[in-house]
Write a protein that binds this DNA or RNA. Sequence first.
DNA 1: AGGTACTGTGGGAGCGCTCCCACAAGTGAT
DNA 2: ATCACTTGTGGGAGCGCTCCCACAGTACCT
Lengths: 351, 351
Amino acid sequence: MASHGGRGRSGGRPTLEEVAARAGVGRGTVSRVINGSPRVSDATRAAVEAAVAELGYVPNTAARALAANRTDAIALVVPEPETRFFAEPYFSDMLRGVGAEISDTEMQLLLTFAGSDRERQRLAQYLAAHRVDGVLLVSVHADDPLPDLLSQLEIPAVISGPRSAAESLTSVDSDNYGGARSAVEHLLGRGRRRIAHITGRLDVYGAQRRLDGYREALRDAGHPADDLLVEPGDFTEEGGRRAMTALLSHRPDLDAVFAGSDVMAAGARQVLREAGRRIPDDVALVGYDDSAIARHMDPPLTSVRQPIEEMGRAMIDLLLTEIADRRPPASRGLDRRRAVLPTELVVRASS
Amino acid sequence: MASHGGRGRSGGRPTLEEVAARAGVGRGTVSRVINGSPRVSDATRAAVEAAVAELGYVPNTAARALAANRTDAIALVVPEPETRFFAEPYFSDMLRGVGAEISDTEMQLLLTFAGSDRERQRLAQYLAAHRVDGVLLVSVHADDPLPDLLSQLEIPAVISGPRSAAESLTSVDSDNYGGARSAVEHLLGRGRRRIAHITGRLDVYGAQRRLDGYREALRDAGHPADDLLVEPGDFTEEGGRRAMTALLSHRPDLDAVFAGSDVMAAGARQVLREAGRRIPDDVALVGYDDSAIARHMDPPLTSVRQPIEEMGRAMIDLLLTEIADRRPPASRGLDRRRAVLPTELVVRASS
DNA sequence: AGGTACTGTGGGAGCGCTCCCACAAGTGAT
DNA sequence: ATCACTTGTGGGAGCGCTCCCACAGTACCT
């Protein structure tokens, strides 16, 4: 059949209207079929689906976005420089979980870095243009203005890590406090008494909570607080080395180290080994994250496993819900959801 | 409730029309100012810009995409599983270059994985929907159908790595052949005579070209071909270990190894050390990529530096050009561009 | 019989922009 | 004076979709 309807643009992509003509129905009906509305008879649905297949029809996203005022896209915002994104398994695990969960949907995922001021500028512009239906915010720092911006623009968002009082965003977190406690209790159970802690960056909520768990586990076991046993790190291997060096000079008699991340534990391990301490004989070592590093370390590292992929999945679920029942602003902020997922201590040879 | 559609003029985002009214001009004029057309008088431009600022106007991307039939977005397609993306510095460097170059434009970058069949399925759907103006394809395998799909859909695309005869896509590459030659010539110049090569996956064009460079450098220096000195790797550390083990058993008298990537060189180093070979005294080692691994290895690794960031930049430049002068299909395939960027040998203690 | 409810369907009215044509006003050559 | 350009501008006509109202048809009440 040469030209059906005499349209000159035979090479272009088929439109809804062309599908409708082909199936012998109206535009609205095709739209209903495409969007899975139940209010279509089986016969009609079949006819439309046949026409769609024959024509190779693919909906025009831009037209849909314009008419329906939604984009079917969500952004995964990483408020870190790209370097850290690649260096830390946390992000890749998270991305994997998010990717897996979102691939069941029609939603598109955008990966966005907001490490530099310039990138943040761009992001703000981007959000203001409402180019996404929702935002996933991972690894937020204490003073970050992003959560506020998001609720101001009334963009549905889910944040990873504990939600602070100021933020009215839905959040997903793992039990940092409990994870740290279980690590320390494990070390105590192994007979360790002078347990040091290398913290993460304390402007990251999770790192603070791990410190709390560490402190309270010791306190509950009747150990006095000893700040010489706590040394701040910054989640990097180099930071782990520095902190371990400091700890050894302050408390040469320590018999265990609980590091706030596997990467820092790796740094600590180097320093311990150079100082001639055997692991776990002289010093027991426990990390956090249960990343690939932990499994491949020599000796294999005991570590607190965070269900990061599951967190990613949970974030998507919550976000999609929030986007779906987008309510009028009046009812906002009343029933924010929050999910806290349990951690698990994976015991290996280092402790 | 209200009969006239609850969506009033009041609270929503300002539109072009509102800006026009405010500035006392027509819709078309505002559009011209927004899009930087020169055909606007200075006075009018200033008035419009003031109105834009006062109203906080941000163009609606969906409307623009629909009307102009472009999306202002390009996809960076990584035809690998996410795992490899994170494991290999190549990708992060590339992403950095691409990100840097694109941030000067209004374009948006989408990161897309196409490692699994499912992901490829999604990507094909995605491309068919023309949701991007162009595609950057990095690390393409020999049998990959993606390039064909792209030219079939007439989507502007730039590929990293040499373009094969079948592909009619613009490409950006580094001089793999020359890089390999310079590595081998360097080793020859240091007096090495039995130089082994651990290849990358040979279905990756670049790996094949490096092998060619290795072979021809030896041949030109009057060395007979010796296939026992060539062992296939797969770009992984484990693959490097395996290949090195095989090489040592085939040619225990080798005095140099040129590895097709730093990661494989790291694997080779382990095996050499375990076999009691000193580097560089007994065996000289040269890698490829000049990644962080090379600098931090013990001893620091001589490596061929690829200008990966520059390649990323060049890819964006070429792609934007191609998108800009999108020609009628008739003239396609005639003047495909191609850029080949030079490599540089970074000599360190391992050779 | 008329009433009330639902189900399925068609198509008008936009969504906010770009494209392009019309046209006024100015400039210069004939 | 006319003609032919140029420059700057306004606004109509869509882009391809979703939303929603109208309405025919059927089913089940009173």
